[in-house]
């Protein structure tokens, strides 16, 4: 890890004044569960690290008129322990519970989950976000791509979004609140994740001089769930995941949001699955069809066709779980 100067602000305004205008100058430290490994591998080499754990404005979970507000520095364990979250937003609680490491849940934060860098091993080994060789040739399509994207992978990005909470937040139509020294702005979580077009840009809409301050999830009476398919039970990112939110009219679906995780460079909103479910009751057959519809456009790479079936099953099981209404 390269040496850096450490700032420990206690107010948001002070924290914002410490940020840089270009990526690479300053990193924001919350839980550190992603940032410290990135710095040890010198994928990130900031001159300054700004600890935001002592900024009061970034904490807390509150019910507001606009919905549930979750502070960016709320830990994943605090999120999971919130009775309000577990009762009202089970898809979010499911995703937090899936982070199967008490140590990560105790330190990792909601804002950090959204801002964590991709797990792509080319990126983590210094080949850049778009993983190209010295001649500009993409390494992933002909390389070790078993954990890479099966949707939205026509280039230039092939990694999968690492965010565990993103799909659920998008399914709930949540908004992420960003602040800079010159003001604040709200971005739908769906628009927060972007496919980078070059190595110097990021996979999120955050600017270098901004901090994620919180999330707002609109209130709604819905059924929802997240289902993750994992290689093992402990300490790993899912191979595929699906978050679903259902608005029911009697026994049939009036509206559905189906968002897949870990299959594309961003969380993947499937309009196809939502359309397949419209006006139908949720049962084994309709849930299976929705899973098929969600993956109909999949374009697996040389080593990851297995993920297509895993993602179909994730959609099906998330739908069945949501329909059962398990809180």
């Amino acid at each position: 890890m390269q040496a850096f100067e450490y700032a420990n602000p206690s107010t948001l305004q002070e924290a914002l004044s410490l940020l840089g205008n270009r990526w690479g100058e300053v990193d924001v430290l919350a839980g550190g569960t992603d940032l410290l490994p990135l710095m040890k591998d010198e994928i990130h080499t900031p001159r300054r690290v700004v600890n935001i754990k002592n900024v009061k404005e970034l904490g807390g979970i509150q019910s507001t008129k606009a919905g549930l507000r979750i502070g960016a520095a709320v830990t994943l364990e605090e999120l999971l322990q919130s009775a309000l979250v577990r009762k009202t937003y089970p898809a979010l609680a499911d995703a937090a519970r899936g982070i199967a490491s008490p140590q990560i849940r105790n330190m990792g934060t909601v804002g950090g989950d959204l801002c964590q860098r991709p797990r792509c091993w080319y990126f983590r080994n210094g080949f850049g976000l778009l993983a190209r060789d010295a001649g500009g040739q993409a390494l992933v399509p002909g390389g070790e791509n078993q954990y890479h994207a099966i949707l939205g992978n026509s280039g230039p990005a092939y990694f999968v979004s690492a965010s565990l909470l993103g799909p659920a937040l998008i399914a709930y139509n949540a908004t992420v609140k960003l602040a800079s020294a010159s003001g604040s702005r709200d971005v739908p979580v769906e628009k927060f994740f972007v496919t980078p077009q070059n190595d110097s840009s990021r996979e999120i809409a955050l600017l270098p001089n901004e901090i994620v301050t919180g999330i707002v999830i609109p209130s709604a009476v819905t059924r929802s769930a997240t289902y993750e398919v994992r290689q093992r039970q402990a300490l790993d990112w899912p191979l595929a995941a699906a978050s679903v939110v259902l608005r029911m009219k009697g026994a049939t679906v009036a509206g559905a949001r189906v968002v897949l995780g870990h299959v594309a460079p961003t969380p993947w909103v499937s309009e196809e699955a939502a359309q397949a479910l419209a006006g139908k009751a949720i049962n084994e057959e309709t849930a299976t069809e929705a899973g098929k519809a969600a993956l109909a456009g999949a374009t697996p790479l040389s080593q990851n066709a297995y993920k297509v079936q895993l993602a179909r099953v994730a959609v099906k099981r998330a739908l069945l779980q949501a329909a059962r209404g398990r809180a």
Binding site: M1, Q2, D41, E42, I43, T45, W121, Y122, N125, G126, F127, G128, R132, D133, A134, L139, G143, E144, Y147, D199, D236
Partner: peptide, 20 residues
């Protein structure tokens, strides 16, 4: 997870003391 085979020189060089 396993490390991938190294397909070539990375564009980004580390200046630290890692073995790699």
């Amino acid at each position: 997870m396993n490390q991938p085979k190294e397909p070539g020189d990375p564009k980004r060089l580390r200046s630290g003391f890692s073995r790699r």
